[in-house]
Amino acid sequence: MDLVLHLADDYLLDKVWARLLPLDDHLYASLPTSANFTSITHLSQSTWPRDYIPRQIISLSVITLVGIHILYFLFAWLSYKFIFNHEMMRHPRFLENQVKQEIQSSIQAFPVMTLLTLPWFQAEVMGYSKLYDNVEDYGWAYLVLSVPLFLFCTDFGVYWTHRLLHHPSVYKTLHKPHHKWIVPTPFASHAFHPVDGYLQSVPYHIFIFTIPLHRLLYLGLFVFVNIWTILIHDSDMVTGHALEKVINGPSHHTLHHLYFTVNFGQYFTLADRVGGSYRQPESSLDPMLEIKKQS
């Protein structure tokens, strides 16, 4: 997020902050000499310089909210339009006005999820993470291997977080709102209780504060995580493909929404196999069969 903030400052936010809080020459002359007010370059023509924490927090909040709305509506719409089987909307457990409810739930969750995530982003901007810029620091082999490392580590983290959210002590309050969507559409991908959505994102933040990862690669993976989350919520039940027992895809997550206690993983089936919660997708479990019965 520090890279995104830097680019946003370069191309937009410096001008916005300069207009909102323009630099006053007399005020500048009276400011105490400190790390925050050392040069007119760092002030970026605003009384709030780039490294001023309140400015960073506000900027990060706006960037995050705008970004998640763009990601959500763009890719959920694309999946809904071109991948999601609209016949699923005739399923007996598909709710009235469900798509509208899914979107409303997501929009309501985004501000609180953003607020909860801000400390991680702020710590990243302040340089406390293990993100790095130069490939030469760890080499190309590590760069390539860090992708499966990120996916497997966060998958296990999400698995156990997700499974704990199904514990009776917290399920009704935190996770049941997401399981309102028995037959979800891609718009259900982010339709969480905000604390639920935040907790399932924590493994991704922990990773970059414990394991080195290239900054640009992390940004790409962060976008991928959100797109993948959208894609596995299309109620699909395509079975028999080569990676079915390895990749935890839409068919697996469809079973999770139908039966609640299986396939908690995000990307792979390994965590579910280790945790004893794996269920193999089968054509006989396809929710489309319920629709055909009505025909």
Results as ranks from 00 to 15, higher is better:
Ile57Asn: 01
Leu23Lys: 06
Gly240Lys: 02
Ile182Leu: 13
Ser30Ala: 15
Ala8Ile: 00
Met88Asn: 15
Pro186Thr: 15
Phe152Lys: 05
Leu143Ala: 10
Leu217Met: 10
Ile53Ser: 03
Ala271Trp: 08
Gly275Met: 05
His42Asn: 14
Tyr28Gln: 11
Gln45Leu: 14
Phe110Ile: 11
Val246Asp: 00
Asn97Ser: 10
Ile107Val: 14
Val99Asn: 10
Pro203Gly: 07
Ser129Lys: 04
Phe209Asn: 03
Gly197Arg: 06
Ser283Arg: 12
Asp9Gly: 08
Tyr138Arg: 05
Val158Ala: 07
Phe84Asn: 03
Pro168Trp: 04
Leu5Asn: 10
Thr210Leu: 13
Asp137Lys: 12
Phe260Trp: 10
Pro22Thr: 06
Tyr138Phe: 14
Lys172Arg: 14
Thr47Trp: 12
Arg55Thr: 02
Arg50His: 11
His6Tyr: 07
Pro168Leu: 02
Thr161Cys: 15
Ser146Arg: 04
Gln294Asn: 05
Ser251Met: 05
Thr114Tyr: 00
His205Arg: 13
Leu165Val: 06
Val238Asn: 08
Lys292Gln: 12
His253Tyr: 08
Asp155Val: 03
Phe94Asp: 09
Val238Ser: 07
Ile230Phe: 03
Ser251Thr: 06
Gly139Glu: 09
Asn85Glu: 11
Leu258Gln: 15
Phe207His: 02
Ser284Val: 13
Lys15Thr: 14
Leu243Asp: 00
His205Phe: 15
Tyr204His: 14
His26Asn: 15
Pro287Asn: 12
Pro92Gly: 05
Thr185Cys: 06
Lys172Pro: 05
Gln98Ala: 07
Asp196Ala: 02
Ile211Leu: 06
Glu87Met: 03
Leu21His: 02
Asp155Ala: 02
His167Gly: 03
Lys245Ile: 04
Pro54Leu: 02
Tyr138Pro: 01
Ile227Trp: 11
Trp48Met: 12
Ile83Thr: 02
His91Tyr: 07
Pro212Leu: 11
Met126Cys: 01
Ala123Asp: 08
Gly139Met: 04
Met113Arg: 13
Leu145Phe: 15
Ser146Pro: 03
Gly220Asn: 03
Lys293Tyr: 06
Leu145Arg: 04
Pro250Tyr: 01
Ile232Phe: 12
His166Gln: 13
Gln280Thr: 13
Ser284Tyr: 03
Tyr171Trp: 07
Asp196Leu: 04
Ile57Pro: 03
Thr261Tyr: 09
Val66Thr: 15
Gln108Phe: 04
Asp24Thr: 04
Val225Gln: 06
Arg273Asn: 01
Ser59Leu: 04
Phe73Ser: 02
